[in-house]
């Protein structure tokens, strides 16, 4: 035991950002999820201008119509982990950010803000520049906010899967009308997958939680994902699966050209659908399994599939044997 009462396993997990997955026996809590959740799946094999039409169609298909967007302030939260111009499969592609911004503008959004609180990197502007998203922000005249150093608002922890009584959020995220998690479709060596729910980790301010969000890692990655999303659930989720990441994600993995965009208002349903497209059982992802009990829908029968058929688009992402969080993802093997 350490002097803080953690077991060695828990400590090493926290250092490396592992959730204490084996101990994740969680009780569902929170509000009743929607009866059925629409999820839009589109084939998208290139990062080009057609993505605007794809995302616009997806917004309408999942009920986010002009009347729901008009006059609203929209915050796009991409997944910008590590900036590498030559490895664009690490981060949400700038073309997806651009397309989402334009789609919301065309739907009548009053403002569109791009905001991120990079987990590993202290230099948020370097992340922005080298990810390519910086050019989009400048060229498309979007507002940018560094969530790591933003002003703070404190909310009661509505999940309580961790021991944290409250959670500090950036006020920009709390005050926006429509918070959109614009995630990347990736495997993850600690959480199994990182999709729209895990992407919300990046909302939490580094100034309060450290880099890489140490407090939340010590509290348990899976548990923290649940707490964050139970307390401040994104209003909409868009997943960039045009080229995702497989293997040793979220940084060291290799490109996975899945050729899809997945989106919808229920992040659990969107993530569960994305997991299926990755050849992964969403029920085997602890935070999805628990979230499905009261935060959103995981069961295929409760997801209204719109857009493309799922089966022809399934691209089994490579998993790394020996990484515990990934070993469990295909229970049928």
């Amino acid at each position: 035991m350490s002097d803080e009462g953690l077991t060695r396993r828990e400590f090493l997990a926290a250092v490396g950002a592992v959730g204490a997955v084996a101990a994740l026996t969680l009780v569902a809590k929170g509000d009743r999820p929607p009866a059925r959740s629409p999820v839009f799946v589109a084939r998208a094999e290139a990062y080009d201008g057609r993505l605007i039409d794809v995302i616009s169609a997806g917004l309408v298909a999942t009920g986010l119509t002009r009347s729901a967007v008009r006059g609203r302030n929209v915050l796009l939260k991409p997944n910008l982990v590590e900036p590498h111009r030559d490895r664009m499969h690490i981060n949400t592609n700038p073309a997806v950010v651009r397309a989402a911004a334009e789609a919301f503008r065309q739907a009548g959004a009053a403002t569109v803000t791009v905001a991120e609180g990079a987990g590993h990197r202290r230099d948020s502007l370097l992340v922005l520049e080298e990810s390519g998203v910086g050019d989009v922000v400048v060229e498309d005249r979007l507002r940018y906010v560094d969530l790591n150093t933003d002003q703070i608002g404190v909310l009661r922890n509505r999940g309580r899967y961790t021991d944290l009584a409250s959670l500090a959020f950036p006020t920009t995220a709390l005050e926006t009308d429509i918070l959109v998690s614009v995630a990347k479709m990736k495997t993850h060596h600690w959480a199994g997958v990182t999709l729209s729910l895990k992407n919300m980790f990046g909302v939490m301010p580094g100034a309060v939680y450290g880099w890489p969000k140490n407090v939340l890692h010590f509290a348990g990655v899976e548990r923290s994902i649940l707490d964050i999303n139970f307390t401040k659930k994104p209003d909409y989720a868009i997943i960039d699966g045009v080229v995702g990441m497989q293997g040793d994600g979220p940084i060291m993995g290799e490109p996975a050209p899945a050729g899809v965009v997945v989106m919808g208002p229920d992040p659990v349903a969107v993530d569960s659908t994305a997991a299926r497209l990755m050849g992964i059982d969403p029920q085997s992802v602890p935070h999805l399994s628990v979230a499905s009990q009261s935060l959103g829908r995981l069961n295929e029968r409760l997801i209204e599939q719109r857009g493309e058929e799922l089966t022809p688009l399934v691209t089994p992402f490579r998993l790394v044997p020996g990484i515990p969080a990934q070993d469990r993802l295909r229970p049928w093997l």
Partner: peptide
């Protein structure tokens, strides 16, 4: 363990009670 560094050497954390 999964991490390569010596987890026993003490420096300072961003937040009290962390690594």
């Amino acid at each position: 363990g999964p991490v390569g560094h010596d987890t026993s050497i003490v420096g300072w954390a961003w937040t009290d009670g962390a690594h």
